[in-house]
Amino acid sequence: MSVSTRLAEIRPARSASIDAFWGMLLRDLTVLRRSMGAFVVRTIAQPLMFVFVFTYVFPKIGQGVGGQGAGATAFSSLLVPGVVAIACVFQGIQAVALPLVQEFGYTREIEDRVMAPLPVWGVAIEKITSGALQGALASVVVFPLATFIPATPVRLDINWLELLTFLPLATAVGAALGLAIGTRAEPRQVPLVFSIIVIPVTFLGATYYPWAQLDPIPWLKWAVLLNPLVYMSEGFRTALTPQFPHMPVAAIYLGMAGFLVFLGWLGIAGFKKRVLS
């Protein structure tokens, strides 16, 4: 055996960091490509059941949300943005938080990436980027489900400018939420994460009803503003189904940007704390 005589030369920090970032993104996408089946299953299971029961079964048996005829059509259209927004949050949990809990936990798998020549915060940003890409893919997978399964026609009126700006923002917020959770939760706390974060966030995220219609319950209307999913759902609502009442567009941008900065900061700080001592 002989070690190559050619030893590493120091490259400028900037280009070394960019290469390392790209290498990690490539790694995440390779892992995703190889587990595409599992990705699709975990992405569609919940929305598929939800859309099927509420917008196909209920109208057919003449029961439930929105009633029949115009009401049912309204509800199935209303649900589309909520289902897409939930997909972004679920990807943040499944593509970022859960793998990180393992990588930080017993196996310390993250170590090799932390030793790559880029700053520790760069590794954290890579995680958000890769989570956001997976969130975008999940939205694309979920969208046709919510559009074509309902028994009653879905009415969409797409504002492309809003859609193409809200989508990256929403997926990044979902991934940043995943990073914040993943860097702080211990493996044994994962079931708790679902009970105390994921379930309340999804049910109270203006996903199954427009936020503006919460007027009869003012305390709830204001309390849920602390839920990042509200801005994601409202964003997709104005972009896909503007016929429903929604939050002012500026407030949605501001809410998403604010949560992206806050959760990103929380996640990066948590990440640093886990790998540096």
């Binding site: 590493a8 070394a16 290469d19 390392a20 290498g23 490539l26 090799d112 990436r113 020549p117």
Partner: peptide
């Protein structure tokens, strides 16, 4: 594992 390590290092 080896391949991606190489990619991380440019």
């Amino acid at each position: 594992n080896l391949y991606f390590h190489g990619r991380y290092f440019g």
